[in-house]
Write a protein that binds this DNA or RNA. Structure first.
Lengths: 137, 137
DNA sequence: CTTGACCCTGGAGCGAGGTCCAGGGTTTAT
DNA sequence: ATAAACCCTGGACCTCGCTCCAGGGTCAAG
């Protein structure tokens, strides 16, 4: 058979077969070609796409968000300005997340340090991790 | 009444009342004191804790992970080395996420740039975003 | 002293994101 | 030429993280 079977793509993307079919139903993955007997035939591209989906999911993106990310492509016949605008929005979003994670990381570093140095420093510095705007009462 | 009512803490943390009770049931929030008539009474600390939970959730942490993060505190009678080890593990995890998001950000920037410059560059550069280890077949 | 805004418990229901059959056909290795 | 290992569809079912009652008590304002 030419093309990859669903079992192969699933395994190389680190997903369950059912999940791959589920993503197809949800429109995250295009419907693949079929063999005469009805087996799905995937190209290597599908693996990349599935890996992207898996990893984006691990980063906390919802399937809806991932769908949007995947829809961002330089396609002929698409307004370039539009694609660019949406990409910019995603960039801002990603930057926000990075900033928050960085705050959390610093809180964790502080916590680890508090543990090395002797003497109790703060009960639970984690709670200060993500404090930003949102005036405290 | 001294202390905050559940409605107040919920509002200042940006959560629904039911969600606060749910977190209590799930052990993310300690059971608060009660008034004689059975109303929950919260201190301002509860608000900080709830905000932390909300924001960590937005970053894609599960409630189980958040529970672990909140459990990381310099408590008297706890092995310091243990807390430190767990904090280090979390730090590594957070750093990984940041690195992945950074890769995604760069892919988005590239995409936006491809759109500005004329000429089709790549069909969907997003897919290269998170490629790392995991040998391509 | 009533009315409206709160609070309580217990339990049902819901949307997202899968996961798992049953029942049946196909491919491949031996 | 048969067993093991795959694949198909359709639909039921599951976990997580809430969200929404019902049925009833409490509190603050006017």
């Amino acid at each position: 058979m030419d093309g990859l079977t669903i079992g192969r793509v699933a395994r190389s993307a680190g997903l369950a077969i059912d999940t791959v079919r589920y993503y197809e139903r949800e429109g995250l993955l295009q419907k693949p070609a079929r063999t005469p007997s009805g087996y799905r035939q995937y190209s290597a591209d599908a693996v990349a796409r599935l890996r992207f989906i898996r990893q984006a999911k691990e980063l906390g993106f919802t399937l809806a968000e991932i769908r949007e990310l995947l829809a961002l492509k330089v396609a002929p016949g698409k307004s370039c300005a539009d694609v660019r605008a949406r990409a910019q929005a995603k960039i801002a979003d990603v930057e926000q997340r990075i900033a928050q994670l960085d705050r959390m990381k610093r809180a964790l570093v502080k916590l680890a340090a508090a543990c090395s140095g002797r003497g109790p420093t703060s009960e639970c510095p984690i709670l200060e991790a993500l404090e930003t705007r949102e005036s405290r009462k």
